[in-house]
Amino acid sequence: MLERMSPRLATFVVFLLNGAVFGTWASRVPALAEQIGAEVGSLGLALLGASIGLAFTAPLAARICAVHGSRGVLIASSLLSPLLLPVLALSESPLQFGLTLIALGASVAAMDVSMNVAAVVVVRALQRPLMPQFHAGFSVGGLIGSLGSAAAAQAHWTPMKHFVLAAVVGVLVTALIAKRIPGGVGERHREEVTERANVLKSPVLWLLASVALCSAIAEGAAADWSALFMVRERGMGDAAGAYAYAGFSVTMALARWFGEPIQRRLGSHRLLAVGGGLAATGLALAVLVPFPAAGYVGFGLAGLGLAFSFPVVMDLASETGKRADGSGGERELGLVTTIAYTGFLAGPPIVGGLAHVSSLVVSLGFVALVTALIIPTTLLARRAARQAASV
């Protein structure tokens, strides 16, 4: 059966694994915060570690993938990321927690860039807008990770016991699919990509990166703070709090999985703008209506609205660097991913800092405003793309 696994399915499984790793540790933030004795301010700074690792590793991973293909980077990072979970559970202070998150963030960044490059290979081979479906795998993985975290919290498992089991499963899954992961490149392609692509002068690419930035801030806020928001601001227990991110992941996964006909009908740019408005509305609902039900519904709407932001932006960005032979786009993906990760980089300290001087309600309200910026930025990106095409 594994010998007949298609590259498309293997790539989808990698997206799922990445989401599961992220959902596993993100949903146990309340337990980890209690373990290391962190308040919202110090916790926000500690969470900054993951974003630092993400932001600094993404461009390096993109360069390696451009020259050598994505397969080797993807396999190595898919093995390392789960193995770092038990190391995270060893943290006894916010400093240790933050330092370990730097390593985990670096591994996840390499995994994220290389799996998107692999997905582009599959999308171009099949000539279908499948990028949202691949990212649905990440959302499903986030759901699996968050539900596993809820079950572990309900069973009173320590983060260490929980993370060791997750690490074993992650390594086994990677070993089973490694041979079917796409991403090889030929020698001609290697010679071409040694010439640095001038991606920094593209207005379209920077606008797309800005959309990804706003989306990343919102998605990171939901992942890092939704559970803690429901626990501290809405009076839920740890297990019930974890379901907020689970709901976010469910709506995001469903939208991505069934979104191919919607993307064909609306078009990429209109879909981005509509989604940004829906996500901003959901976050505003969660923070403005002081009832737990509104929080769950709001985070669910946010997941629905943000579902297409990152995959559609990645798809559009890769097309700006596509060559006549069907290759290219790795450096463009690397730039957009790096800019997006600055959202993860800025998000934790901004949310934590605002919460420290006010509350999580105020800080997540700020995130809702940032999310609304997706709408005008997308419209500008569409205009810039049309102008570039007419030249």
Rank of each mutant, 00 (worst) to 15 (best):
R4H: 13
A10I: 12
A20H: 02
G23E: 05
A31V: 11
L45Q: 07
L48E: 01
G49W: 05
L54Q: 03
A58H: 04
P59W: 09
A62D: 10
P86D: 10
P86Q: 10
V108P: 00
R124M: 11
A136K: 05
S139Q: 07
I144Q: 01
S149N: 01
A151E: 00
T158L: 00
P159K: 03
M160E: 13
M160T: 13
K161F: 01
K161V: 13
F163E: 03
A167M: 06
V169C: 05
V173F: 08
T174W: 09
A175I: 05
E187N: 06
E192W: 05
R196S: 14
L200K: 03
S202E: 13
L207E: 07
L208W: 07
A212W: 00
A212E: 02
W225N: 09
S226G: 07
M236A: 15
A244L: 09
A255M: 15
W257C: 04
S268M: 07
G282L: 11
L285K: 01
A286W: 08
V289M: 05
G300V: 03
G305V: 10
A307T: 10
G328V: 04
E330A: 15
T337W: 07
T338Q: 09
T342A: 10
F344N: 05
L345M: 11
V361Y: 04
L369P: 02
V370N: 04
L373W: 04
P376K: 08
A381L: 06
A384T: 09
V391I: 06
V391Q: 12
